[in-house]
Amino acid sequence: MKLMHCPLNGWRNFGEFVYGGEVTLPPAHDADPKEWADWVFMEDNTAGVVREWWFHSPSSYWFIAERDNVRDVVLRTYPPEEIFQERVDFSSEGASQ
């Protein structure tokens, strides 16, 4: 079995990980439905280096992997904080609901 490096737990068998899809930034909450449909349904399907979500199941830890899917090599893995640094707020937060 192949190994992958988890930023929290180190090298582990692939069997301990769950794939979570491409890393794509969701549209604004009030964006056009077309934009949302694109985000929900369309994958870039890049041949080359892709940025993916991976989940280490035994520790319930999400992280991001940069993987060359042509050579099938994981180049780098890192915590999601590297990309998601800011708290996300929705402008018209329904304070009363």
Partner: peptide
């Protein structure tokens, strides 16, 4: 559900702890 919650909050970064 738990996995999905963790995934979303990895992006939202709200002050919330999610425990299964």
């Amino acid at each position: 559900v738990y996995r999905r919650m963790l995934w979303w909050n990895a992006q939202w970064r709200l002050d919330v702890d999610i425990a299964n």
